[in-house]
Amino acid sequence: MALNIQQVIDQLDSRFAGQFGNVESSYGMTTIQVRKSAIFDIVKFLKEELSFILLTDVCGAHFPDNDLDMRFAAIYHLHNLVENVRIRMRVFLPEENPEVDSMTPLFESANWQERETYDFFGIRFINHPNMTRILNMDEMEVFPLRKEYPLEDAGRADKDDRFFGRTIHNE
């Protein structure tokens, strides 16, 4: 039975009506926007009933210009290898205490990817076995990929802005 993305959406619709919205397709991939409370169940359904057995990717994003309850996003890519169907899911999370269910009970591969997302954005994953930083040092206090933090090391003394054409006037 060939499975196409529309059938996936229909099945999700009959099962999880109202739990997700904004189905949009662009550049060959369908994105659905999922409520925070439903993401675990939807991924579980996709994995167990519709054999999306490969969790391709988990990552985060920071939207500083969004509304307060949509400042962060956790983004999941799932792949059904047999039917070759991919789906992307996005969960928006609030500025205050961004938390979402961990996928580690379903996919081992989510473990480090979620730790990385926590490391970069401070999005906490509930039920994660080891919610600590992975790439940066444990002593780090900031979540560096949030837009408000600068790229460069703030403590650099050798880099005189005047020599890089940067003054307070042209910033």
């Binding site: 391709t56 990717d57 994003a61 920071h62 983004i75 890519h77 591969s109 480090w112 990817q113 990385e116």
Partner: peptide
Amino acid sequence: GFYLISDGSRTPFRLHFRRPCFIYYQ
């Protein structure tokens, strides 16, 4: 994989690399 979010500006808004090594080294 390259997951790119573009906001139309000259730089990517967000670019995430799906690095196979990172995932399977777990």
